[in-house]
Structure formats: structure tokens, C-alpha cells
Write a protein that binds this DNA or RNA. Structure first.
Length: 274
DNA sequence: AGGGTATGGTAAT
DNA sequence: TTACCCTACCCTC
């Protein structure tokens, strides 16, 4: 779940549910006791999202940095919440709602210099107003690695993960193994625009949905039916077999028919937007 | 009910 | 390159 869409959705929800009120902050698991003690009784001004990173801005001037990693999850409970159970890393208890954080890779106070370092190594984020497609293109031109690997590099583009990279490249009709810098300017722009569109839809739906729902289909379909290639046997666009292989230490899913290797004679072509 | 797997990144090796 | 975090989900039984 935690690609950029999840993070931006949490920033929005937590700003709505928890900001501008006194919060009881605790760390029952004991691994963020110091941060909890510093923040307890304080108030959040707003929550910012950069790629897959959450920054909670407290009225004291403190910034709490949270990164969910692969397992991390926030659960929203009505206040007052039940007694904490298990490995509960952080609990933010507000007047009406409580947010419980489990399994994050990062949950720490972030001093200004370290925040600068963190943001400096993030590429443009399509979900942010300041996300700049020209910066993205410049990042790609600088890299010889495959486009499927470049999209996983948070310094190239922030917020895209393993599901979105597969889906974006399928829709763009681009073979993931093509060197990033070999993409045409139009292809680079298409990859950015499709990423932005899919991530934005993900924030709204609060899940990854890259494929239009079939007419008359029930409103909530299994993930398998909400995507074109990720973890599928057959491509949802053409019905052909989906290829899977390791790329950037993760499993890549691609349709060889919809994502042909480009040649000088026949550059790969993008799908018309669904 | 229970087992296998992973939407991510860091630190150790 | 590998171990790890140790949750939620999906699948099978």
C-alpha cells in the first residue's frame, strides 16, 4: 500500500483529523519514547508529504519524520482508543480520532539540517505542486540505467514504487529495460504525466487503481482487476502473457506485446489514455 | 486458520 | 549482496 499515493492521502487525512488540537503522544513499544515525550501535549500545524516521506510540523517548531517502508501502517481509530496491543510504535491521540503507527522504517524527530539532506536527495514528486517534469526529464537524461529501474530511484522521481512503475510503463507502452536516457522527450513527458494521473487517482481512491472499472462491475474490485499487469498472469489490455523478471532488485511485470523494445524503425508507442 | 509474500529502504557485510 | 523490520493482504485448506 505505501507508495506515494498512500503518503499524500495520510498527510491530508491527518491534517484534517489531528491538526490544531492538543495531542496525547505515546510510544507503547518503546522505540520512539524520546520523540513522543518531546511532542506529547503539543499540536500539529500541518502534515507535509514528499514522495514516500511524511513530515509532521508541530507548533513548537519540531518536525516528526515518518517513513512507512514496506510494512508500516497507520490505523485510524475513534478516540478514546482501546489499550495499545502489540508493537505499537506511535500513538497520536486527538479529540475525535487517534492514529496508531506500526512497523515504520522511520519515526523520528528531524532537525533542519537533516531534513535538508533528506529533501535534497529526492527527485520531483508528481503529487506536489512544485513537481517539475523538466527536472524529471533531466534526471532521466543523466542515467544509463533501464527506465524500469530509474522509476524506482527516489532521486529520479519521488513517490513511484513497484506497482506504479509497472503500470505506468504498460500504459506508456515502454519496455522497462530501455535505457532511461534513450527515451524521447515525448516519452519522458508521457511517463511523468501518466505517473501524475495514476498517483492522483490513487490518493482519491486511497488504493492503487490504474484500470477503468468494467461497466456494471461492483464498486470495489480485487486489486488484480484494478491493474493491467502487476502480479497478473495475463495483460488486462491485450490478454497476452505477462512477463516477470528482476529489475532493480524487485519483480518487474511487463507485457511484451504492449511494451515492445523500441527500434529506429518502430519507436514504441503509448496507449491512448484510458 | 494458517502460510506465503511484498507496495521500501537502511544498515551490516 | 544480504538481513531485517514484523504488518496486511491474498491465497489455500
Amino acid at each position: 500500500m505505501p507508495e506515494g499515493h498512500t503518503i499524500h492521502r495520510l498527510a491530508r487525512d491527518h491534517t484534517r483529523d489531528l491538526a490544531k488540537q492538543s495531542l496525547a503522544v505515546s510510544s507503547p513499544q518503546g522505540r520512539a519514547v524520546q520523540a513522543a515525550a518531546a511532542l506529547d501535549g503539543g499540536a500539529i500545524e500541518k502534515v507535509d508529504a514528499y514522495g514516500k516521506h511524511l513530515l509532521y510540523r508541530w507548533s513548537t517548531g519540531d518536525t516528526l519524520h515518518v517513513h512507512l517502508g514496506l510494512y508500516g501502517t497507520f490505523r485510524r481509530l475513534p478516540s478514546p482508543p482501546p489499550e495499545p496491543r502489540g508493537a505499537l510504535r506511535l500513538r497520536l491521540q486527538g479529540e475525535q480520532f487517534t492514529a496508531d503507527l506500526r512497523g515504520p522504517i522511520a519515526c523520528e524527530l528531524l532537525e533542519a539540517p537533516r531534513e535538508e539532506l533528506l529533501l535534497a536527495r529526492l527527485g520531483p514528486d508528481p503529487l506536489r505542486r512544485d513537481g517539475d517534469p523538466e527536472r524529471f526529464a533531466a534526471n532521466l537524461r543523466r542515467r544509463r540505467l533501464p527506465i524500469g529501474a530509474a522509476l524506482m530511484d527516489q532521486a529520479v522521481i519521488a513517490g513511484v514504487g513497484n506497482v506504479y512503475r509497472a503500470e505506468v510503463l504498460l500504459i506508456a507502452g515502454i519496455d522497462p529495460r530501455r535505457p532511461a536516457r534513450d527515451l524521447s522527450a515525448g516519452e519522458m513527458r508521457a511517463v511523468w504525466d501518466i505517473s501524475k494521473r495514476l498517483l492522483t487517482a490513487g490518493v482519491k481512491a486511497n488504493r492503487i487503481v490504474t484500470r477503468p472499472r468494467e461497466a456494471g462491475r461492483k464498486s470495489r474490485v480485487p486489486r488484480r482487476e484494478a491493474v493491467y499487469v502487476y502480479r497478473r498472469e495475463a495483460c488486462a489490455r491485450c490478454g497476452g502473457p505477462v512477463e516477470r523478471y528482476e529489475l532493480a532488485a524487485r519483480t518487474m511485470y511487463a507485457c511484451p506485446a504492449c511494451q515492445p523494445a523500441a527500434t529506429a524503425d518502430s519507436p514504441s508507442r503509448a496507449l491512448s489514455p484510458p
